[in-house]
């Protein structure tokens, strides 16, 4: 039975987990319902921005200027793609290390950013700011950029075109697969999960 279920899910390309489907922009009720560990498929508009675009946005906020896009309840994907081969919407487009954006994130959350997609854990300051503004952090799989690109249906540069692969981009995604890594209650898989597997490698080697 378990085998049939696994096969069925494999055929559907879903792995063995149940996926929750959500649409952007996010709201209190969507974010409150999601918990660390949930598998989620995101559909709708998201923005892609990495180090250089974040620096420009934060510099603009510090000068009291408006941002080129409205970020209230929106989701930012920390990523910069390869150029598209002919016939493709985009080249491979996997997540980059989120920790590098930690310095900019509290300011982004303060203006209403609701969700972030990236890879790797966030600082304590970011998690605290997320709890305060009810925001959520999703993990995508780093190094699976070719697979992820297939979920991006449209893409256009929204601002800072001169930054090339680091430009702020607007993406339309369909069933974009992520895992809730840190929920709006501050529970983080990067804290809870590794503990469970400490010293298990040696135990496993001894059994073999």
């Amino acid at each position: 039975m378990q085998f049939c279920f696994t096969v069925l899910c494999k055929l559907l390309g879903m792995g063995i987990f149940m996926y929750k489907k959500i649409s952007t922009p996010l709201s209190d009720s969507i974010v409150e319902e999601l918990q660390a560990g949930d598998r989620v498929l995101i559909t709708g508009r998201i923005y892609a921005a990495r180090d250089a675009a974040h620096k420009r946005m934060c510099d603009a906020l510090a000068r009291g200027e408006a941002l080129p896009v409205e970020l209230t309840d929106e989701v930012i994907y920390y990523a910069g793609p390869c150029p598209p081969k002919p016939g493709y919407v985009t080249g491979p487009f996997g997540p980059t290390t989120s920790g590098r954006m930690d310095r900019y994130t509290p300011a982004m959350l303060a203006i209403g950013l609701r969700g972030m997609i990236g890879k790797g854990e966030r600082s304590k300051e970011v998690v605290e700011a997320m709890k305060k503004s009810k925001a959520i952090y999703f993990a995508a799989i780093g190094g699976a950029g070719a697979l992820i690109a297939a979920k991006i249906k449209k893409m256009k540069v929204a601002a800072y075109e001169d930054l090339g692969a680091e430009a702020l981009a607007e993406l339309w995604v369909e069933d974009f697969p992520v895992i809730v890594a840190t929920d709006c209650y501050g529970v983080s898989l990067y804290e809870t999960e590794p503990k469970k597997y400490k010293d298990k490698y040696t135990e496993l080697q001894n059994l073999r």
């Binding site: 898989l189 999960e193 590794p194 469970k196 010293d199 490698y201």
Partner: peptide
């Protein structure tokens, strides 16, 4: 591998 970090840091061997 005994650290438990695992694939993508989400736990494992």
């Amino acid at each position: 591998n005994n650290l438990g970090i695992g694939p993508q840091g989400l736990g494992g061997i």
